[in-house]
Amino acid sequence: MIIVMAGGRSTRMGREKPVLKVGGKPMLLRVYGEAEKVGEAFVALSKNTPKTRELCLTEGIPFVETPGMGYVEDVGWLLQEFGPFVSISADLPFVKASDIGSIAKAFDGETSLTGILPLGRVPRDLKPVVYRNYAVVGLNTVGAGEEKFFELSNPLLALNVNTPEDLKLANEIARLVGR
């Protein structure tokens, strides 16, 4: 099962990120479209994302409403309600089905895998979250067991759209790569 996480408050952006357009298409539709190529997928939203709910209803995308108390709490709630799953942030506009498929294939249903990129693969204009010389990306698996890193290869996974500047950069990249 693949869950697109789209229920955050978007405080750094100042507006709901999943409905913002990259390359002329809402980020949620970009991410969900890739996820459903891999397997059963739905969107996790919350009271914080009414426009995202509206988009899901309009597009016929299945969704569930989480308590909306925070990312960690919502992930825990989803694990309890649905069991182990692949988690993708709705603000990863350049995630590909192959990225999702690779982490899903490695998932044993127990071990949580945190998607990472070696810093050498990260384009220099991006400012990812860094941990132990790796960029941590918003593509993971969630299980009840131990946590491990899972190395991905798509350098554009390092672009997590959190700020207006990130959105501008994502649109520039989309124009350049034709996505």
Score class of each variant (00 low, 15 high):
Pro118His: 11
Val43Met: 13
Thr49Ala: 14
Leu79Gly: 05
Leu45Ser: 14
Val43Ile: 15
Val43Trp: 14
Gly60Pro: 01
Glu59Lys: 11
Phe94His: 06
Gly70His: 09
Arg30Asp: 10
Thr52Pro: 05
Arg124Tyr: 08
Lys51Ser: 08
Glu73Phe: 09
Val72Thr: 09
Phe107Arg: 00
Glu34Phe: 11
Glu65Ser: 09
Pro62Lys: 06
Glu34Val: 13
Ser46Leu: 11
Thr58Ser: 11
Val31Tyr: 04
Arg124Leu: 10
Gly39Trp: 09
Asp74Cys: 06
Gly120Pro: 06
Gly76Tyr: 08
Tyr71Ser: 06
Thr49Lys: 09
Ala44Thr: 14
Ser89Gln: 03
Trp77Val: 10
Asp99Asn: 08
Arg121Asp: 15
Glu73Asn: 07
Ile61Thr: 02
Thr49Tyr: 14
Val72Gln: 10
Trp77Cys: 07
Ser112Gln: 01
Tyr71Asp: 02
Glu81Asn: 04
Val43Ala: 13
Glu110Thr: 06
Tyr32Asn: 02
Asp74Asn: 04
Ile116Leu: 08
Phe82Val: 10
Glu81Val: 12
Val38Tyr: 05
Arg53Gln: 02
Pro67Thr: 11
Thr66Met: 05
Lys51Ile: 07
Val95Phe: 04
Val75Phe: 04
Gly33Tyr: 02
Gly70Gln: 07
Pro123Thr: 11
Val95Ile: 12
Leu78Pro: 06
Cys56Thr: 07
Asp108Cys: 09
Gly120Phe: 14
Ala104Thr: 02
Gly60His: 03
Gly83Met: 06
Phe63Met: 11
Thr58Gln: 13
Asp91Cys: 10
Gly120Met: 14
Pro93Asn: 08
Cys56Gln: 04
Ser102Lys: 12
Pro50Ile: 12
Ile103Tyr: 01
Glu36His: 06
Val43Tyr: 14
Val64Ile: 15
Tyr32Pro: 00
Gly68Val: 07
Gly70Ile: 02
Val31Gln: 07
Gly33Trp: 00
Ala106Val: 05
Phe107Ala: 00
Arg124Phe: 09
Ser87Arg: 12
Thr66His: 01
Val122Trp: 04
Thr58Cys: 03
Gln80Ala: 13
Asp74His: 04
Val64Ser: 12
Arg124Pro: 07
Thr52Tyr: 12
Gly33Gln: 01
Gly39Ala: 06
Val122Ala: 08
Leu78His: 09
Thr58Asn: 08
Val122Lys: 00
Pro123Lys: 03
Gly115Met: 12
Ala44Asp: 15
Ala90Trp: 13
Tyr71Ala: 11
Leu92Phe: 00
